[in-house]
Simulated scan of single mutants.
Amino acid sequence: MTDRRPTRRSVLKAAGGVTAALGLSGGSLLATTATASAAGDGFGLRIVDRNESDPRMKYYRFATDAIEWDPGVNVLLPDGYDSGRRYPVLYLFHGGGTDQDFITFDRLGIRQLTAGKPIIVVMPDGGHAGWYSNPVHSNTGPRDWETFHIQQLLPWIEANFRTFAEYDGRAVAGFSMGGFGALKYAAKYWGHFASVSSHSGPASLRRDNGLVVHWANVSSAALDLGGGSVYGVPFWDENRVTADNPVQRIESYRNKRVFLVAGTSPDPINWFDTANETQVLAGQREFRAALGRAGIHHEWHEEPGGHFVRPHLLAADIDGAIARLRKA
């Protein structure tokens, strides 16, 4: 643990996760394509915009049948990528809210946090309130974020960049709503990711009469789905909730690196901050207790403050993921 604390100016305060109101296999096949400049269409993705001029940060926007609008992705390459080596990949997911998108972690300083580190970081769009899910119902066209991330983007990355296309070559992490998405994908697609991290992300969907599920439905209806919902209203798709609920998928985290962060003292004046992190902290403690009972190793951090990304813990998390994954 470190005693450094971020200031309000040094962190991103985002509307994610429980905000406001509260495939592939894990085989050993290596990716085949070589350079960023060779990136092309495939896996249901058609590139409609790109910028590959930066030596490290590559930007792409896709047309896809999975999403009604064209989602973007930033792909951050390591220093020395052109040396020809292959690298492990960290998929890094943003939180919810109208100010959150694939650029979120670039605003947070991800280039500096990864300088000199041998890992590719993939940062895709996830919607204002997409919840890293295929919704039960949408009135605004397709919003199948789970399909986009797992069935399309992941294989596209491995076909266009020099990665280790295997279980030990992939990590997934996120903040808030994105932290939930990371926990969900790591369990639901257990053969894909050897490391999973949640920074202030909810880990328990059914606690407190399903508060997180209700918020996912309310926020997605308001921001993304035109009155539709992720899990169903007034009746949930119970099988879908169970499949997505980290505390009900405990065995899926065995033999993975698990890294959790939550704040212990949200701003008492800011109901938005308090509603978020109070629920996050309780859910992560429930999740950690279940992991402990199952004998599944995990690393956790509780620190003062509320619902924001703690850069020093994000940096420590990246180092831990690199240590767990296959070496470049």
Rank of each mutant, 00 (worst) to 15 (best):
F105S: 01
H298E: 08
W215E: 15
P71N: 06
D319K: 10
V258A: 03
A63P: 00
E303G: 02
L92F: 09
S204L: 07
D79A: 10
S265C: 05
L108H: 05
W215T: 15
G210V: 03
Y167D: 05
G95C: 07
K327H: 13
N245E: 13
Y81D: 04
V48Y: 08
V121P: 00
H149N: 10
G95T: 02
V233K: 11
S200H: 03
V48W: 08
L76S: 03
N239H: 11
I67R: 00
S176Y: 00
E251K: 12
G191L: 04
R8Q: 12
Q100K: 10
K13M: 13
H94D: 02
E286Y: 00
W69F: 14
R310F: 09
V258N: 01
I296T: 01
V73D: 02
S28N: 14
L154H: 11
G283S: 03
D319N: 13
T33K: 14
H312N: 14
V258Y: 00
K58A: 02
S176C: 02
P78C: 07
F102I: 05
A262W: 15
A171S: 10
R61L: 03
L313E: 10
F193L: 04
K13C: 12
G130K: 05
G305P: 06
A34T: 15
D65A: 12
L223D: 10
V258S: 02
H301Q: 09
G228Q: 05
R288E: 13
L45Q: 05
Q248A: 10
R162T: 06
G232E: 01
W300Y: 15
R4E: 15
V18R: 09
L113V: 08
Y132W: 13
D82V: 09
D106K: 12
A38V: 05
G27T: 13
